[in-house]
């Protein structure tokens, strides 16, 4: 593996499978009465979060603690940024205290690349702007594989705000690399220019897109996009793209429904679907811990000089 995990593009297909296989073993640790192994004892992991995050930050922190790493959370409020310390200066100060890993969440695409150029510590991207969220894609793949026993040849449909989604970009790279037939679907105002060059089918008709799907992955529509700028209204969005039981019925009988969270019930997904029998949304959350343990172990678990 490379020094850092900045995006799915940093991983070969073999490395993706290695992470998924390692995550199987890590999940078993989470099922023990004492959920802790000494693998990262003496290693320091800094969770540097420039954006509010409950799920991802908690998931990383639990993963780090289960591996016995010393963890430190730095939540940088927008006000501190305004006070004037740059990302580079903050990173160099943290770096001076010699952590082994920095987990970064940041609103700017490419922030992790900047950090990786100035830090000796390993950098894990926990979401950078509209760019990538690689551990989310890995945990999604882990969840899909658990249910379907394979990824190659599956029809995976991703529906929602494609333009602003880092989850989309990481999932497209990972799922196409592993041979899935990936469809992306959303209103034409929220489709990134040239996304078809990433090897996906693009559709603006959700009924067509979900037909015979093995996996339906919903993406969140953010509030600031809702009122006229990209879509006319919540009501129209739900009518046109919302995942309803009727739409789910067009997919394969054993379809699974995924969502990276946080969900907007009644906006992109009906509650009957989110809470229904096909939903694996909470399994995704559980698997997130195992997958992040695997990434941390594979990046930082070795002896210095490996």
């Amino acid at each position: 593996m490379k020094k850092d995990l900045l995006g799915i593009g940093d991983l070969t297909r073999d490395e993706i499978y290695l992470i998924l296989d390692t995550a199987e073993a890590m999940r078993e640790i989470g099922q023990r009465p004492i959920k802790k192994v000494p693998t990262l004892r003496g290693k320091t992991v800094v969770n540097l979060f420039y954006e509010p995050s409950t799920r991802t930050r908690t998931s990383f922190e639990i993963a780090e603690k289960r591996l016995s790493a010393d963890t430190l959370n730095i939540a940088v409020a927008a006000s501190s940024v305004l006070k004037g310390e740059t990302l580079v200066d903050t990173a160099m100060n943290i770096e001076a205290m010699a952590p082994d890993v920095i987990v970064l969440r940041h609103a700017s695409s490419g922030a992790c690349h900047l950090l990786s150029r100035i830090c000796r510590s390993r950098v894990i991207n926990a979401g950078d702007g509209m760019h990538e969220h690689p551990t989310q894609a890995l945990l999604d793949a882990f969840t899909i594989r658990e249910h379907k026993k394979r990824i190659d040849g599956l029809k995976v449909v991703i529906v929602g705000d494609l333009l602003h989604s880092r989850v989309l970009r990481s999932n497209v790279l990972l799922l196409t690399e592993l041979g899935a037939d990936v469809w992306v679907c959303g209103p034409s105002t929220l489709v990134p220019i040239g996304v078809e060059r990433l090897g996906v089918r693009v559709s603006t008709r959700v009924d067509e897109a979900v037909k015979d799907a093995d996996v339906i992955m919903m993406l969140r529509i953010q509030h600031e996009r809702m009122n006229g700028a990209f879509i006319p209204s919540v009501r129209e969005y739900f009518n046109t793209f919302g995942m309803t039981p009727a739409r789910v019925a067009r997919a394969k009988p054993d379809v699974i429904i995924m969502h990276p969270g946080p969900m907007n019930r009644g906006v992109e997904i009906a509650s009957e679907v989110a809470d229904g029998p096909y939903s694996v949304i909470l399994e995704q959350v559980a698997n997130g811990v195992a997958v992040r343990m695997a990434v941390l172990y594979l990046l930082a678990g070795g002896v210095e000089g490996d």
Partner: peptide, 13 residues
């Protein structure tokens, strides 16, 4: 520039 590369990198075009 709005195009494939900006899209892939998550940069506004």
């Amino acid at each position: 520039h709005e195009g494939f590369h900006a899209s892939a990198l998550g940069l506004r075009g």
